[in-house]
């Protein structure tokens, strides 16, 4: 089954490469920066925690990128981004309904992608596919917790920096794919190159759980993030 996948991928890549034979001369290197909005979900089984709901929440990202054109329609794109990948856990048992925790996570993301582009000289579409490494830089937790006496439950607001421990996996990898649009401002002499604006929607999909578990425990938690970024680059 795996061999069949690989054959399909190789055939498609070959097809793309041969279709790029009409490439024309252009600057190859783009350096740019981007700002983004993102939306993160967590995938996790219930593992007996019957009343928890995980709610995606949005965050922001900022970063840099470099694109190097191999062909008119194919470039390699790499980047470095600081990205919020946050979510909220809500308890639903009636007795502790107000309890919730927002997990505010900051990750350094290092994606490397193939950038397949198509379209006209100025307005072009892009399809991206690649992998990334990510480092869980820091985290804060905030929300409402509870404490109990014999007859009462009380609620308490909290916010604190997360102290990482040996069960946290801070270095993870994943796959990234997405679509984008770019607009290329031509040089004054009419040649291609100059500046470029781009709008991308990328989907980051962790391959590693950020919780290691322990002996005889496998309870993986995976983050997935949809990131919409708006950026500006300069051709060199």
């Amino acid at each position: 089954m795996k061999v069949s996948y690989l054959k399909n991928i190789a055939a498609i890549l070959l097809c793309w490469m041969t279709m790029g034979a009409n490439a024309q001369e252009q600057p190859k290197l783009v350096l740019g920066g981007q700002l983004g909005w993102d939306y993160t979900t967590i995938d996790r089984t219930s593992m007996g925690r019957l009343d928890e709901t995980y709610v995606p929440i949005s965050g922001y990202s900022v970063g840099f990128q470099v694109r190097y054109s191999l062909l008119d329609w194919l470039a390699i794109r790499a980047g470095f981004e600081l990205m919020n990948r946050s979510y909220t856990m809500e308890r639903n048992l009636p007795s502790i309904d107000p309890v919730r925790t927002k997990y505010h996570n900051d990750y350094f993301m290092l994606p490397v992608m193939a950038d397949f582009s198509f379209g006209g000289k100025r307005l072009r579409g892009h399809a991206y596919g690649g992998v990334y490494g990510a480092f869980w830089k820091s985290a804060r937790t905030m929300g409402t917790t509870f404490w109990m006496t014999d007859y009462h439950i009380y609620y308490e607001e909290f916010e604190e920096k997360r102290q990482f421990n040996s069960e946290d996996r801070r270095l993870i990898g994943g796959g990234v794919t997405g679509l984008g649009l770019s607009y290329i401002f031509p040089n004054k002499d009419g040649s291609r190159g100059g500046n470029i604006l781009f709008l991308d929607a990328l989907y980051y999909y962790d391959f590693n759980s950020h919780h290691k578990g322990h002996s005889n425990l496998s309870d993986p938690r995976y983050l997935s993030t949809l990131s919409v970024t708006f950026g500006y680059g300069i051709y060199f």
Binding site: Y5, G129, T177, F207, S209
Partner: peptide, 20 residues
């Protein structure tokens, strides 16, 4: 085709939780 392939490849990369 490219996006479909990418999605299929991604989905096979996560470990399932053991019952515990």
């Amino acid at each position: 085709i490219f996006l479909t392939l990418a999605a299929m490849l991604f989905c096979g990369c996560r470990e399932e939780a053991d019952y515990h």
